[in-house]
């Protein structure tokens, strides 16, 4: 086991897969010569050359089309969006092309493409750069949607994404890039999609989240443990496919559930997860499912307003207490 930061784990996954398969290449804004906006792709141009680490103009539709078409023609592109906010430019290529071509062709065309980049909220980036839109992609049939929390997951899930024959939306969290964790030595270590991880066992309440939301849950669980409340924390890892079995099994032990997300609350992943809990474990619940989410406003700039718009571990702990009351 080696200890490394989340962003290094993302880089390691790309490096290993590019070494393994010559059909894998990277493209995106500033991925090469600039060494990556967040330094995620640092050194890859030097290692693999300009044919496989392709700097693009600021043209998100072009990037998405480049990756989609190359995948349809047999390559395995990894396309980086500088942030997921900029992917909004490319929605037609993503939703109307990458996600649908396999189905529309009756399975005659495959589209093994990964779209990746940083997502998440915070650091006073304000409305157009600070938002979480994972539910848009989870809503669209044809995508697999992956949001890793730990460095080990970032690497293991990205390797699975690159090897997958379907289009994968891979959302890293910019606020997790600097976090450290242990990463397995095996260069073939992968994590299959659709298997949630139980990050902490507990018997009183189930906390369900993904990406940086898991961090809030872990901190809330620490706080609550001091008061004798034991929370079980589930990290979904992939939103599509969604491992509802692990969630339902946990709820059947704890009889209480809180769903935590940074994205807006209205018509969101949390809405879906809560609905699935009701569908799969209604009789096991002793109280309604609680939801902790971002405020339904464009992200404000002012520090105090931003803080009020982003959920905290204190919000999570309060929700647990409400559901247990």
């Amino acid at each position: 086991m080696a200890t490394m930061r989340y962003l290094q784990a993302v880089r390691l996954a790309m490096t290993e897969e590019m070494e393994r398969d010559p059909n894998v290449f990277l493209c995106g804004e500033e991925v090469g010569q600039y060494q990556g906006t967040y330094r995620v792709t640092e050194g890859l141009l030097q290692k693999f050359g300009a044919q496989r680490v392709v700097d693009t103009p600021i043209s998100e539709i072009g990037i998405a089309g480049l990756a989609t078409g190359a995948a349809m023609a047999g390559l395995r592109p990894v396309a980086e969006f500088m942030t997921w906010s900029f992917a909004l430019e490319a929605m037609d290529q993503l939703v109307n092309h990458a996600a649908k071509i396999t189905y529309m062709s009756g399975g005659r065309i495959h589209c093994p493409v990964v779209f990746r980049g940083p997502a998440g909220v915070g650091t006073q980036l304000s409305a157009q750069h600070s938002q979480s839109l994972e539910s848009w992609y989870a809503h669209t049939p044809g995508f697999k949607v992956v949001l890793p929390y730990t460095p080990s997951d970032a690497r293991g899930l990205l390797k699975s994404a690159i090897r997958d024959d379907s289009p994968v939306i891979f959302m890293e969290h910019a606020g997790l890039y600097g976090t450290s964790g242990e990463v397995e030595d095996d260069p073939n270590f992968t994590i299959p999609f659709g298997q949630a991880a139980i990050r902490r066992a507990g018997k009183h309440c189930t906390l369900v989240s993904y990406s940086r939301g898991v961090q809030l849950c872990m901190r809330a669980a620490d706080r609550l443990a001091e008061e004798g409340v034991e929370c079980e924390v589930i990290d979904l890892r992939t939103l599509v496919p969604l491992d509802i079995d692990t969630v339902a099994a946990s709820v059947s032990r704890t009889h209480h559930a809180v769903v935590v997300q940074e994205e807006w609350k209205n018509v969101s992943m949390g809405s879906e997860i809560a609905a699935r809990i009701y569908e799969n474990a209604f009789d096991e619940l002793d109280a309604p499912v609680e939801r902790v989410a971002g405020a339904d406003v464009p992200m404000p700039y002012a520090k105090n307003l931003e803080r009020a718009a982003i959920p905290t571990d204190i919000d999570v702990a309060a929700a647990v207490k409400r559901t247990l009351a």
């Binding site: 089309g65 078409g69 190359a70 290529q93 092309h97």
Partner: peptide, 13 residues
Amino acid sequence: PVALGVGFALKYR
């Protein structure tokens, strides 16, 4: 945009 990608793949190979 898809043709851009297909053309890229033809050249890449």
